[in-house]
């Protein structure tokens, strides 16, 4: 359980990091919190020749409110998200979700950028970012670009990141005042990835759902937006029949792998239940 040898780089600016990553090529990996990458390196399932540590780049830190959006630097840790009044106020679902990630020690190191960028289908933040309509700022040798979260994930550990690019910040539109939200995560124990999880953000008007987004974690090789399920609930009062239809629509797009968390059928089944529960709890939170 010892990583292979590598060279260590600690650039002080995004530009330097990009320069390093593009010149070192495939054998270089950016190091954020490291709590996905370092265990893989210890198992020698990853053996990069170069690690580019992003901790020295002050510009990658911080949480800012810009009008109707919240911008979060990629190297902001889960612990910092949890400590942020701005997040608690504007994006309470992000607070709720961060608290369900791993354990306290991991949350001190684990970053939101690492969580969304490495493409691990077990991570919680990607589906949440899709649900919130977040976009990622990617900076690389050819400049900067914005990619919406829903177009970022291409497969397990495959993302829209081009060689030499790093994800530098996340921009999240603040949901409407009075919105309801819930992240329902079924896991075996603290520290586990979700057996299945569902994120819901919705608004209600006159007792009916006015808008709704539903994201799904760890039930497919990428995080999913359950758009059909969300469409089905809009305009309803979330009556039992609608909830059932929505859950079925969400289950229909799930394709989890069988693992120690359970067989495929179970993971899909509880995925549907997470959707139902998240919808119900979110609706109850609307004001």
């Amino acid at each position: 359980m010892i990583p292979g040898s590598f060279s260590y780089h600690r650039p002080a600016s995004v530009a330097d990091a990009i320069k390093l990553l593009s010149s070192l090529g495939d054998e270089a990996r950016p190091l954020a919190g490291g709590h996905s990458l370092i265990p893989m390196m210890k198992l020698r399932l990853a053996s990069p020749d170069h690690l580019v540590d992003l901790h020295g780049i002050a510009a990658l830190k911080g949480i800012h409110r810009d009008g109707d959006r919240v911008s979060i630097g990629a190297m902001t840790t889960q612990h910092e998200l949890l400590a942020s009044d701005e997040i608690a106020r504007s994006l309470p679902i992000l607070h709720e979700t961060a608290l369900l990630i791993a354990d306290p020690q991991v949350r001190y190191m684990g970053t939101i950028g690492g969580n969304v960028a490495n493409g691990d289908p077990g991570n919680d933040m990607p589906a949440l970012m899709m649900t919130l309509g977040a976009s990622y700022r990617l900076e690389g040798p050819n400049g900067a670009r914005e990619v919406v979260a829903s177009e970022f994930y291409q497969g397990a550990y495959f993302t829209a990141l081009e060689p030499g690019e790093i994800l530098t910040s996340i921009s999240i539109p603040v949901p409407a005042a009075g919105h309801g939200y819930a992240y329902e995560k079924l896991k075996r124990k603290i520290g586990d990835y979700a057996t299945a999880a569902a994120a819901v953000v919705l608004t209600m008007s006159g007792g009916k759902v006015a808008s709704c987004a539903i994201g799904l974690t760890n039930v497919h090789e990428t995080p999913l937006l359950a758009t059909e399920a969300a469409r089905l609930v809009v305009g309803t009062s979330l009556d039992p029949a609608t909830l059932k239809q929505a859950a079925a629509a969400a289950v229909a797009i799930m394709a989890p792998a069988a693992d120690a968390r359970g067989p495929v059928e179970y993971r899909k089944h509880v995925g549907g239940i997470m959707v139902t529960r998240a919808l119900t709890r979110a609706a109850a939170l609307t004001k």
């Binding site: 370092i38 265990p39 210890k42 690690l51 540590d53 612990h79 020690q105 001190y108």
Partner: peptide
């Protein structure tokens, strides 16, 4: 594998698992 916490130390005001961080960091 970053689960047990026996290696926990305090680093700049954070509890960290010292088996999942490099000394150079």
């Amino acid at each position: 594998t970053t689960h047990c916490g026996a290696c926990t130390v305090d680093l700049d005001g954070m509890s960290v698992k010292s088996c999942t961080i490099f000394a150079v960091q």
